[in-house]
C-alpha cells in the first residue's frame, strides 16, 4: 500500500524496486495506491498495480488522506476476496488507516516501512501532532517496522518509543536490501511475531 506510484518519487521507487525483486522470486505482488484516475495495470509478470481515485480534495493533507484511505481499503478488500494475500506492507503514515484496518479485517501480518517521521519532517503543520499519532498507531499495530536510514531509526526509537526488537534498519541504497525484506516476510509466514528475537516471540505451537 502506497500513497502513489509515480516516476522518480522515493517511496514509489522503493515500492517498485521491492515489487520487481519479489516478482523475480515468483511472488505475486499487488500494489494499491491513489491516482487521479482509476487504472488496473501490470508492472511486470506477477505485479498488479491497482490505482484508485478519490474525488474530494480536502482542506488538508491529513483530512484528505483519512478519506482517501477508504478507497485503498475497498480495493484491498476486493483483492483479498478475489485472490487472498499473505502479507500487508504499508508505507508511511499516509496509508495508516487502510493498512491497520485491513490487517485487522484479514488477520494477516502487517509490515510497515516508515520512510521518514513527522518529527524528522519538522512537525510543521497544524496536523503534525495527529500525523505523529497515526505514525505511532501504524507502528504499534505493525509486527515489524522497517526504517531506511539511521535518522529515521533513531526517531522511531526516541520519538515514537518503538522497542528495538520491532525495528529493522534496511537501507534501500545497499545492494540486496530486498532480500532482507523477503526474509522478514518469510519469518511472518513462519509465525514469528516480530522481526528478530524469533525464539522469544514466536507464536506458541
Amino acid at each position: 500500500m502506497s500513497r502513489e506510484l509515480t516516476e522518480k518519487e522515493s517511496v514509489s521507487e522503493y515500492v517498485k524496486s521491492l515489487a520487481l525483486f519479489l516478482a523475480g522470486k515468483g511472488i505475486e505482488v499487488h500494489i494499491v495506491c491513489f491516482s487521479s484516475s482509476p487504472e488496473e495495470a501490470k508492472l511486470g509478470e506477477r505485479i498488479h498495480v491497482h490505482k484508485v481515485p478519490f474525488i474530494i480534495h480536502g482542506d488538508s493533507l491529513f483530512n484528505w488522506s483519512m478519506l482517501m484511505n477508504n478507497e485503498l481499503k475497498r480495493k484491498s478488500r476486493e483483492i483479498f476476496e478475489w485472490k487472498g494475500f499473505d502479507i500487508i506492507h504499508g508505507n508511511d503514515w499516509i496509508t495508516s488507516t487502510s493498512a491497520i484496518s485491513l490487517a485487522k479485517f484479514t488477520e494477516k501480518p502487517l509490515v510497515v516501512t516508515i520512510h521518514s517521521t513527522e518529527k524528522e519532517r519538522g512537525f510543521g503543520t497544524k496536523h503534525s501532532s495527529l500525523i505523529s499519532d497515526m505514525e505511532w498507531w501504524l507502528t504499534y499495530e505493525a509486527g515489524c517496522v522497517l526504517s531506511n536510514n539511521e535518522g529515521t531509526y533513531s526517531s522511531l526509537r526516541n520519538d515514537l518509543q518503538l522497542p528495538e526488537e520491532k525495528i529493522k534498519l534496511i537501507n534501500p541504497l545497499q545492494k540486496g536490501w530486498q532480500n532482507e525484506v523477503l526474509d522478514i516476510y518469510q519469518k511472518f509466514q513462519n509465525g514469528m511475531m516480530t522481526c528478530f528475537n524469533g525464539e522469544k516471540s514466536s507464536i506458541e505451537g
Binding site: D59, S96, S101, K126, S129, L130, W137
Partner: peptide, 20 residues
C-alpha cells in the same frame, strides 16, 4: 479520539477508532 486542531480532523481520528 485524540487532541486535534479542529473538529474535522478530530472526527477523522475518531472515525478510525470506530472502524477498528
Amino acid at each position: 479520539s485524540t487532541y486535534a486542531p479542529d473538529t474535522i480532523s478530530w472526527s477523522m481520528f475518531l472515525s478510525h477508532q470506530m472502524e477498528k
